[in-house]
């Protein structure tokens, strides 16, 4: 989703599914846009504002309030590391440190090659398998600081293989 034209087209397509949308449809619309485009770009937010007749500032007010919404592109592999209580008790802080070291980015950032982005989530709800992380909807459970480099490496290889093919 590079050019702003295609973003606007995508947004209009989504908005067409919500005829007579009111304020209460704002969050579902933003969720759908993020699902389709990966994040909420400025163009997308402005377009939603035009269509729903809500000031852009109000939309940003709502979107920045919730943890789910992102305002920059995420990596090819989006890593969600769980920092819930059960994971914390089982050492997720060290896991996060290991990820930061391995990827050389901080939470909320994307690697320069665009391969990985890192996000902290409150709880994935897989507490029985703590500590856990979720990489683009694949769960990795019972993590250790030693297992992190191997997992990241496997995704790097996967990406390299996809590029080569």
């Amino acid at each position: 989703m590079n050019s702003s034209v295609s973003v606007i087209e995508e947004v209009q397509k989504i908005l067409a599914r919500y005829p007579d949308a009111g304020r209460d449809q704002l969050i579902p619309i933003l969720q759908e846009i993020q699902g389709a485009c990966g994040y909420l770009s400025r163009e997308a937010v402005v377009e939603v504002g035009k269509q729903l007749n809500i000031p852009t500032s109000k939309i940003y007010g709502v979107a920045t309030f919730y943890n789910q919404f992102r305002f920059s592109a995420q990596g090819k592999y989006h890593i969600q590391i769980c920092r819930g209580t059960a994971c914390h008790v089982k050492g997720s802080a060290a896991i996060l440190d290991a990820l930061v070291r391995e990827l050389k980015i901080n939470p909320g950032e994307t690697t320069r090659d665009g391969l990985f982005s890192l996000e902290i989530v409150a709880c994935i709800g897989a507490c029985g398998l703590a500590p856990v992380m979720n990489i683009s909807n694949n769960f990795h459970a019972k993590l250790t600081t030693q297992s992190i480099p191997g997992i990241i490496k496997s995704y790097r290889q996967q990406a390299a293989a996809a590029k080569g093919a």
Partner: peptide
């Protein structure tokens, strides 16, 4: 909206 970290009953 099971927000409590460490809870997954509802899920």
């Amino acid at each position: 909206d099971e927000g409590d970290p460490g809870a997954f009953m509802d899920r």
